[in-house]
Write a protein that binds this DNA or RNA. Structure first.
Length: 511
RNA sequence: GCUCCGUUCGUCUAGCCAGGUCAGGACGCCAGGUUUUCAUCCUGGUAACACGGGUUCAAAUCCCGUACGGAGUACCA
């Protein structure tokens, strides 16, 4: 609000499609930024060249486009703190690593991955866990144990090395998390993390601290999986002598059943998308479904995601993106993980679908019809959609609730036949056909008037007639007001359906 | 193993920070109502403070412990 210097970032790694947990993290960042009149930045963290996946960055951008989440700065927008892709910032990290070496906060380590692995295995055999920490570093191959000339020689010879952060010994690091409050950790349980890799790239830890500082990030809002490395990051800021941003660690999204965080497999197993958009793996060709392709509206998706871990503090449930911005506050974000609930997601979609205008829905429905090679002819799709939209959760479901407007029922549902095709139905329907044949004005209002008058005159049961009638027109016991249906399909089709139904179903003998 | 984080109806959650309401709402489910059917809709119902101590006149709320769960523990982010 009053703080115009709020700057937050979402910093995904382009290693594949964006998980919905990531979408939620980005959403909360966005909401926080907009709520406080700040900027939202998209930074791509591609410091691991081995895990680069083509198309992943484009996917991320497209996903946010679909969601309606806009960035103020970033890979697609540019900005005065660029470049926003870490691979494009490669050169600047080295000097910061050097700064730490000079100040004695970091050191060269020449141990090869193989050597370290051997030690790790050895200790494992003794049921111990190896960590490159204050104790271990004193007898490993690094610039702390080697003489300056030895180090110089190794460096000159081009020996591969990494740069490790020298974790201070026996200090209590006090951290303040905006969601969890105070967290304390003693450095004696921390290890000397690699901050600069032998391939010349920084690790996440160095890169994110340097970039957040350079990009003047005011609040780091990220997933809970980063909480364990917060002490390192805080130590890094201290070692550089930089002001720290505020930190907030969001709870995880959990799988709907069982334990653990939501994974791609859960979606496949339980039949719901774990990604905002459909994704085709460039290597395996494997397709993962997306919310967009599954028929979710972006506003429903966002509304549902926002409420998974945050609440407005009152009983409101429906929020537009702008409404979320207005209502959002980091204090109302929960501490514990949330399970994704598919039923509630559907309910949200239903809500937004019903809220849409019939014209808009008709447009979407027309695409469905085209795919099925159904020609709606002169039929008023808006009107039809308006009659059935309350019965569906998705546009794609509109067809099964309205196919009888376009097609003669292929079969008569056996259950319904058993229940509604009574002994008298045969005669009743034949009579009804004659009655309707004489009707000129086939409007819903008029046919209803005529048919009801006939029923009353003959003292037939309303239910008996109408249910059998519906069976012949629709094929089963479903659908909107019957007279509305026959108005749409018209007199000719209505009479044909009655005629055909009577023929096929025949006269049921009394039991 | 170790470190950190967490734990209110089946699910999302309010309430916890500033102890005192039959622990509230929503989804789901069940029942009833409306209706020519189904769905919508309306009404009602179901169902939770992980456990054990402590502090207190009083604890979901504060403190300690236990259990359970999760995350991290890579030259991945």
């Amino acid at each position: 609000m009053e703080n115009s210097s709020v700057r937050v970032r979402f910093a995904p790694s382009p290693t594949g499609p964006l998980h919905i947990g990531g979408v939620r993290t980005a959403l909360y960042n966005y909401l926080f930024a907009k709520k406080n009149g700040g900027s939202f930045i998209l930074r791509i963290e591609d410091t691991d060249q081995n895990r680069f996946v083509p198309g992943a960055e484009a996917y991320i951008v497209e996903a946010f486009n679909w969601c309606g989440i806009e960035f103020d700065e970033g890979v697609t927008k540019g900005g005065e703190y660029g470049p926003y892709r870490q691979s494009d910032r490669k050169d600047m990290y080295r000097e910061y690593a050097d700064l730490l070496i000079q100040s004695g906060n970091a050191y060269y380590a020449f141990d090869t991955p193989e050597e370290l692995n051997d030690i790790r295995k050895q200790l494992e055999a003794e049921k111990k866990i190896f960590t490159y920490d204050a104790v271990q570093r004193t007898h490993l191959k690094n610039s702390l144990t080697l003489s300056p000339s030895e180090v110089k020689n190794l460096l000159h010879a081009g020996t591969p090395y990494v740069i490790r952060f020298k974790m201070p010994t026996d200090q209590v690091i006090v951290m303040e998390d905006e969601i969890r409050g105070r967290v304390e950790v003693n450095t004696s349980v921390l290890d000397d993390k690699i901050i600069f890799k032998s391939d010349g790239m920084p690790t996440y830890h160095l890169a994110n601290v340097v970039d957040d500082h350079l990009m003047k990030i005011s609040h780091v809002i990220r997933g809970e999986e980063w909480l364990p490395s917060l002490p390192l990051h805080v130590s890094l800021y201290d070692a550089f002598g930089w002001d720290k941003p505020k930190f907030a660690h969001l709870p995880l999204l959990l799988k709907p059943d069982g334990k653990g965080k939501l994974s791609k497999r859960d979606g496949d197993r339980l039949g719901f998308p774990v990604f905002p958009l459909q994704w085709t793996d460039p290597e395996s060709g494997e397709v993962s479904r997306g919310y967009r392709e599954d028929g979710y509206f972006p506003e429903a998706f966002i509304n549902m995601m926002a409420l998974l871990g945050w609440n407005p503090g009152d009983e409101r449930e429906f929020f537009s993106l702008a409404g979320l911005v207005e209502a959002f506050s980091i204090e109302k974000v929960g501490k514990s993980g949330s399970r994704f609930d598919q039923e509630k997601a559907k309910w949200f979609n239903h809500h937004y679908l019903v809220e849409k205008s019939n014209d808009e829905l008709a447009g979407l429905f027309l695409d469905v019809l085209k795919e099925k090679n159904i020609d709606p002819g002169q039929k008023n799709l808006s009107y039809i959609v308006g009659l059935v939209k309350e019965r569906v959760n998705f546009v794609a479901e509109l067809w099964e609730q309205s196919s009888f407007f376009f097609e003669v029922p292929a079969v008569y549902d056996p259950q319904t036949v058993k229940k509604r095709w009574k002994t008298d139905s045969f005669e009743h329907m034949k009579e009804l056909e004659v009655v309707l044949k004489q009707v000129q004005d086939f409007s819903s209002e008029n046919t209803e008037k005529v048919v009801k008058a006939w029923i009353e005159e003959k003292e037939y049961g309303m239910g008996a007639i109408m249910n059998a009638f519906r069976l012949l027109i629709v094929g089963e016991a479903k659908g909107p007001h019957l007279f509305d249906i026959i108005e749409v399909i018209g007199k000719e089709d209505t009479l044909a359906r009655i005629n055909r139904g009577v023929e096929i179903l025949g006269k049921k003998e009394a039991n």
